[in-house]
Amino acid sequence: MPTGERVPNRKWRVSDPVDLTDKDLLARVKANDTIAFSVLVDRYKIRLFNLIYRMLQNREEAEDILQETFLRVFKEKEKYDPTYAFSTWIYTIALNLCRNELKRKKRFKFFGLDLIKEDRRYAVEEKGNKNCLSSTLEKAIASLPVKYRTVFLLREVNQLSYEEMSQSLDIPLGTVKSRVNRARLILRKRLKPKIEEQYELSKSSPIPIWLF
């Protein structure tokens, strides 16, 4: 029997779940691995939360929808079609839930910057909060009509490719591109008077979103 250093048997090496791909994690989740599920949740929760919160303009609702998104992922894990990327799938779910929630609430598709002042009042009551959604830029984004706000956030905040957006929204690629462009131009218009002011007021930059 040869002595010497034991070489770990490759067959039994257990991979750290953090290193696994989304699809591999999902496979584990199907086998009731809750740790794998937590890893998956941590991977996507901040990205999705930023999207959902900015879509709904309400923190509580956003958390509910975020939770519901992950619950759906878990409940329908067998129905996932592997020809699509996992991220496409989870974005689809999140976007559908947002859309339904917005319809349900019958929010105004379009609300001027004035209306958002009311939200600021509400936002101040949140504990120890910096009024994250009350900056000029946030307000301007919030004022975009839903269709434009969706694609704008997906592109600029979540940094999805046009392809992914087309798949998640089930919209032709050309439509996505033109909507993004239109959204940007609307935003530009809204921000016109405020740019100089905002730029001078901005403090130390927070951590960029796409690192998450």
Binding site: S38, N50, A62, S135, Q198
Partner: peptide
């Protein structure tokens, strides 16, 4: 602004 001024929003700590 889009790069720097949008704060990263985080769900509550007991979310998981």
């Amino acid at each position: 602004m889009l790069k720097d001024d949008l704060e990263t929003l985080v769900p509550s700590t007991d979310f998981n």
